[in-house]
Design a protein around this nucleic acid. Structure first.
Length: 320
DNA sequence: CGTTGTCAAGTAACA
DNA sequence: TGTTACTTGACAACG
């Protein structure tokens, strides 16, 4: 079984390489010349994309083939005040540079985790509409980068609204209202407070959505702590995907702040997990969610180096 | 130059 | 009913 390690959004080792510089709405409206303000948004977005490419180069240099892009590349992209702004056209050059790079490195897996304002299971149609708009932006970015958009956006189920059963059924209802091109983007992840892996499996199996298993969330929120009870079903949700299953791993910051992410990853948790699913699948991509980003990945690899049960295929992937 | 408060958006917990 | 955390960085304002 091959395990590739990845990390999230930004690097602690590259200087001045933020892919998520921004302009807030209040800054935007303070600029009297609206055209100038929009050009400034465009300059920021271009710089963010250039830095995404720098991050991808950094990843290749370190054998890292799995990476989550930030969802903050284009500031205010879905804001009401700039709804006439075609934010993709001015980014054509930067997007095609990323596209060329990814074409030259076809093993690189890149995806998004749109933030928690994207909610698909509410009764409020305005919330659904703005969520679809935000997902549309993600899709346009993926298309611009030449990435097949299938299964590139991981989301949580959404809100409980005091009735979890009803909230799950509302997800199914809303799913029918979502264009197929957007449906295909989506993966669903178990969360740490509301929808545990059994809930998410119910939706994923019914609707044909791949399930991203988050170990840390599972430890915080479960019916049954033993994930091996669910693992075969989780794998099955990936049966029709062109991509290998992916999981998330993070360590609790402390006993008291259990749900918060720690700076680094506890290697024993990762080893336990992969030993318990050993042989069940050819490849799993494992997203490291730690405050220290790529440094946490490097430290994890270092910590695992003396581990005899695994064999390194490069600086960021191993087999067992 | 270092520190503090704010940011477009949703939900839930808590006062 | 209103405030804050979530996860969290970026940036402006302030000292």
């Amino acid at each position: 079984m091959l395990v590739r390690l990845g990390y999230v959004a930004m690097s602690m080792s590259l200087q001045n390489a933020s892919p998520s510089q921004t302009m807030t709405h209040s800054q935007f409206i303070k600029i009297p010349d609206r055209e100038a303000a929009i050009r400034k948004l465009e300059r920021i977005a271009k710089s963010n994309l250039k830095n995404c490419l720098r991050l991808l180069r950094h990843n290749v240099a370190n054998d890292i083939e799995f990476f989550r892009l930030t969802s903050k590349i284009i500031p205010l992209a879905n804001h009401e005040d700039v709804k006439d702004w075609n934010y993709i056209r001015p980014l054509a050059e930067e997007l095609s540079e990323v596209k060329e790079f990814l074409l030259a490195h076809p093993k690189m897996r890149v995806d998004f985790h749109p933030d928690h304002f994207v909610v698909l299971n509410g009764e409020d149609t305005d919330v659904l509409k703005s969520s679809l708009k935000t997902l549309g932006m993600h899709r346009k970015l993926l298309m611009g980068m030449g990435i097949p958009p299938e299964h590139r956006c991981v989301l949580h189920v959404g809100g409980v609204y005091n009735d979890k059963e009803k909230a799950l059924e509302q997800f199914i209802h809303n799913w029918g209202l979502i264009p197929e091109s957007i449906q295909r983007l989506i993966m669903l992840e178990n969360d740490d407070t509301s929808f545990h892996v059994e809930d998410v499996l119910y939706l994923c199996e019914k609707l044909g959505i791949p399930l991203v298993f988050d170990i840390h969330h599972h430890l915080a929120n479960h019916e049954n702590k033993d994930w091996t009870l669910y693992w075969e079903r989780i794998l099955n949700t990936w049966k029709h995907s062109a991509l290998p299953p992916k999981i998330h791993i993070s360590s609790p910051r402390s006993e008291k702040e259990f749900k918060a992410h720690a700076e680094f990853i506890e290697p024993s948790l990762l080893l336990d997990f992969f030993h318990s699913i050993k042989g069940s699948v050819e490849q799993v991509d494992c997203m490291i969610e730690a405050k220290r980003k790529d440094e946490a990945l490097f430290k994890l690899v270092h910590d695992l180096e003396k581990e005899a049960s695994i064999e390194w295929v490069n600086k960021a992937a191993f087999t067992l």
